[in-house]
């Protein structure tokens, strides 16, 4: 097996506490993410998923473990990893366009002014922000528009890994749906690897190739990796008719409602160095070839678990 594009090994974060024992937010997080994969991570507040994302971004450091991307250890922030934050993090004194061009200039310092502008326009166009809107300041844009600028900026620098920290959390449900599909459209034209935090089960199923489920903190871990094999291109309106949709959805909701609590503080049954348990939902009628052991056991439409070491 070739080395995965992104390897997270034994990641853990412990905060010292003045009274009592130190607080371990999460531990033994082991992940492999392949190039071009879209991975969502879901968990209750306080399980440390934002910290994991910040460690991947290089903005925070873990207490234990390491992150290796493309054969190199992540140490500090880099243009190879673009981040979209929940609160957009646009610079409010710059226009939408300038918020993108400053990033493009940082990425390719030798580009001419025209080339920077052309490249930035291309990405703003992808998220539908042209025709005058690109010259507005962030406060003159709606929340959805601001997040579009933020997404355009992140894609424009063509990072090896795109990190999305609950990007649609602050948007109303209708806007969220529209931007989710836009994100899918922009993403599908690229081979962009994405790691995204979300609280929204439907959003995760729509977007992800794989959904990581975290147990509750403290001492949280990634308990399961649910493969979403619903064929692409996906659309919000049609995806709900997929035969596996509700099986997956129920599995996720059930995990978040009960098992995330039950599994809290437990260790990975496959050992601390193991990656999370893989859960697959083979396509109905056409069982997808999975690991031989799992394929024989799996009843159609029901989750199959297989440990991948």
């Amino acid at each position: 097996m070739t080395r995965p594009f992104l390897e997270v090994q034994g990641l853990g974060k412990t905060y010292p506490s003045p009274q009592g024992p130190p607080l371990t937010v999460f531990r033994d997080v082991n992940l492999h993410i392949q190039k071009g994969e879209f991975v969502c991570i879901i968990g209750h507040s306080g399980c440390g998923k934002s910290t994991i994302l910040n460690v991947l971004a290089g903005l925070d450091t873990a207490t234990t473990g390491a992150v290796i991307m493309d054969g190199q250890e992540v140490a500090g922030p880099s243009l190879d990893r673009g981040v979209v934050f929940q609160n957009y993090s646009l610079l409010p004194w710059l226009s939408a366009l300038k918020n993108v061009t400053f990033a493009v200039k940082a990425r390719w310092p030798r580009w001419s002014r025209d080339k920077v502008a052309e490249h930035s326009y291309k990405y703003l166009e992808m998220v539908g922000l042209t025709g005058g809107a690109e010259h507005r300041k962030p406060h003159q844009l709606s929340g959805g528009m601001r997040q579009r600028v933020s997404i355009a900026r992140a894609f424009a620098i063509q990072p090896k890994l795109l990190l999305l920290d609950e990007p649609f959390g602050a948007l109303d449900a209708l806007t969220r749906g529209v931007i989710q599909e836009e994100l899918l459209r922009v993403w599908s034209g690229t081979n962009q690897t994405v790691f995204m935090i979300t609280h929204d089960v439907d959003e995760a199923i729509l977007l992800a190739d794989r959904i990581l489920l975290m147990t509750n903190g403290p001492e949280a871990r990634v308990a399961e990796a649910v493969s979403i094999d619903i064929p692409r291109p996906r659309q919000r309106t049609s995806i709900i008719h997929d035969p596996n949709y509700y099986a997956i959805r129920n599995h996720l909701v059930e995990f978040l409602a009960t098992r995330s609590k039950e599994l809290a503080g437990t260790a990975n049954p496959d050992g601390d160095d193991a990656t999370p348990q893989v859960v697959q939902f083979p396509t109905q009628g056409f069982p997808r070839p999975v690991t031989p052991a799992a394929a024989t056991k799996a009843p159609i439409g029901a989750p199959t678990s297989s440990a991948k070491g």
Binding site: S78, F85, S89, A106
Partner: peptide, 12 residues
């Protein structure tokens, strides 16, 4: 802090 993080992730 967010704006500083923007600067950091863009390697300024």
């Amino acid at each position: 802090k967010d704006w500083i993080n923007v600067a950091r992730t863009h390697e300024l």
